[in-house]
Design a binder for these strands. Sequence first.
RNA 1: UGUCUUAUGGUGUAAUGGUAGCACUGCAGUUUCUGGAUCUGCCUGUCUAAGUUCGAAUCUUAGUAAGACAACCA
Length: 564
Amino acid sequence: METQNEESPKKILNFIEAFVEQDLREGKNGGRIQTRFPPEPNGYLHIGHAKAICLDFGVARDYEGVCNLRFDDTNPVKEDVEYVDSIKEDIQWLGYSWKNIYYASDYFQQLWDLAIELIKQGKAYVDEQSAEEIAKQKGTPTVPGTESPYRNRPIAENLAFFLKMNSGEVTEGSMVLRAKIDMASSNMHFRDPLMYRVITSHPHHRTGNTWKAYPMYDYAHGQSDYFEGVTHSLCTLEFEVHRPLYDWFIDQFKASAYRPRQIEFNRLNLTYTVMSKRKMLQLVQEGLVSGWDDPRMPTICGLRRRGYSPASIHSFIEKIGYTKFEAQNDIGLLEYAVREDLNKKATRVNAVLNPVKLIVTNYPKDKVEMMETVNNPEDETAGIREIPFARELYIEREDFMEDAPKKFFRMTPGQEVRLKSAYIVKCTGCKKNSEGNIEEIYCEYDALTKSGLPESSRKVKGTLHWVSAAHAVQAEVRLYDRLFSVENPSADPRDFRELLNPNSLTILTNCYVEPSLVEAKQLQQFQFQRIGYFNVDLNSNPDKLVFNRTVSLKDSWAKEQNKA
RNA sequence: UGUCUUAUGGUGUAAUGGUAGCACUGCAGUUUCUGGAUCUGCCUGUCUAAGUUCGAAUCUUAGUAAGACAACCA
């Protein structure tokens, strides 16, 4: 009775989950677990964000805690509601739901009040120097900074100026509020970090023109965590140096033993991809891709349009893990993950991308047979459907060779092949035009080898997919490949735009797909038999079918040929 | 000539002082009405050097290499 648990292997914890369990064992925060996903609404989410989302929401789920969505909207210059909606959509598509939605801007008043408190304690001051002067005084990582001439002005003066920073009397850039810490600290972030700056040029997307002084990240982020009761504040490695300051601010205000714990993990770097918001924006603005949801983009919406499933993204993220090592993740693993998922789920259909006519010369001219075919051999519950077979078919041009090498198992004169779910046929020849291009291929079928009949179990080396010429529907198929031609575009000295793969998109307009696909819905995923996984594009409609290649099938024949 | 962080097969990730394992890739084979999938096998690894210990991928020290930090961005 008690034996079940002994059988189940213990889940391998990553270092963050191990910390969380340790905190739980030690009884911290009364056993409460709370995380947050804190995007800035200034761009679209990409697969790197998905990694963070899976951790933030996953930890909350696994330890019966809560995860909130909080928009870190402290910089009205860059932010917009447009992004808020897409961020929500992408998180939900990944399968997560937040407990609450918060905005850092909800805390502007609280943050303001605490800043005043800090000024009163003599721990913050208004600096009237220019950005350049302040930067100069910061020193360098190896040279200590120097103190601002305004550092020791009277508290009353600081209070008065701070009020002016928010009243509209002060022009943008002329005053900032700084925490008074240590200009000689070996941690640059302790050299009197900026807490507030004045922004009058852009209204805030939620608070409008109410505020003129806006809090900076280091102050606002940590305090927001604290206000919300976050127990584990998970972020990427570049914030490691910020952690002492994160702790410092919270220590100035905390009222009990509770303090959120920041833990940093490694960012997701994908080979043959750029992940920086700036570079992605450039690709979009310069028309080098069709938009944020271009199927070649590593954005969540791009992956969705490309045909990636949420399950495949979860599986990929689980495989790469969370560590403190700055990894280069192989995009091949992402492709493996989507093949693995779609192999189990996608209906197999027939589509001929590069068609050539095949005529079954001994098949009656007007006859049409409906052939039964299984929807998915990996899933018995997927059922069967019927596809029309007739005398004139289309097959792939690459599936025929007039003079074939020994290992070529496809259509070649004198050789038998199986037409999937139909008959075994023997190639009898072909017709070429004056330029030597093949126009038609001929074969004869053996009526006894219809699929399901005893004679159909005859061994033939090759099986081809096909569509009936009279019944097939013309379609556009877009073949995608990796966006960049070098493994690590960010490490390359050349401009990243010079590194784009010129063959990342191939549009085929003369493809033929089986008639059942007219019914296909947008984003629906299929396996085009023997070719790859494809989905229905967002712009597809029954009058003009458009398919996107998610990923090709593994092709050991192509590999064999490349060896030669 | 600072502070912090990291280093395990080609790639990613386990092993928490006690047999270096898993996944992807690659290679070979099996099987197949998808040259897919499946199944099997194989190749390849603890950055270096000292130290502690019966025993070190793990702890210590020193080196080496890589990354983060000098935005009125987050």
